[in-house]
Amino acid sequence: MVLGIFVVVMWVLIAIFTPQLAPYGPLEQNIPERLQEPGPGHLMGTDQLGRDVLSRVLYGSRISLPFSLLVIIVAFVLGTIVGAIAGYIGGIWDELMMRITEVFMAFPTIILAMAVAAALGPSLINAVIAMVVVWWPNYARVVRGLVIGTKKNEYVEAARAIGASDFRILARTILPNCVAPGIVMATVDIGNAILMFAGLSFLGLGAEPSTPEWGRMVSDGIDFFDQWWMSAFPGLAIFSLVVAFNFIGDGIRDLADPRMRRQR
């Protein structure tokens, strides 16, 4: 977990200080130096337009990291709102909303995301929208379950007895007791979000051409198969970030589960 935090912090710092760290601009072309192997001048080589792969990988952190987080945050907020309302009101609304989440969950994630992203047209924001469409039902269901469990507590009844409004009860009394497991789940999901985001871009459904996005860079490298560095390094960047988030996620899950703590 410590290693995971270290790697994530490193990538966050890279993302913040990219302009200072990167030896070249992400779009800076240098045709005479195209397709160079990794070496002293270009540590990760150059691509078909002579752009420095290292610089592009560094700039890529400014896309993959914030956009994947954005997906998780928006999906989490949306899912929490829907789930909390469904769980609190109950009855036919609850039933209806849960059937809707079931329909969304019956689609395998990548297929649905792909269809939405393709229909909206490829762009970073549309990829985010597509992924939110796929992701929110998970949180909605978890939060709903927690809200149903929490609203039976006596302190909720107490809040109602002193005349708190439904909104106040839900927002101030119930939800604070439900968010922790949701946050654990969201943290564990960040790695998967990065993977899927890169996957969509790889398929050409995320970042526009020439954007220094890691998944996109890997797919650009396919046409230059023997110039392995074009795909290998951006892929390694995705991999390192996802591994780091998964380490953190595992750590948090163990901490959140007292049984696991005892076993250690």
């Binding site: 890169a198 998944g215 490298g221 198969f225 023997d226 998964n246």
Partner: peptide
């Protein structure tokens, strides 16, 4: 197992193709 769930499949596929095929 943690590496297994963290590897981007498209990247792994390219690397394996490069090594074992190319």
């Amino acid at each position: 197992s943690i590496l297994g769930v963290s590897t981007p499949v498209f990247w792994l596929a390219l690397i394996l193709l490069f090594i074992f095929y190319s």
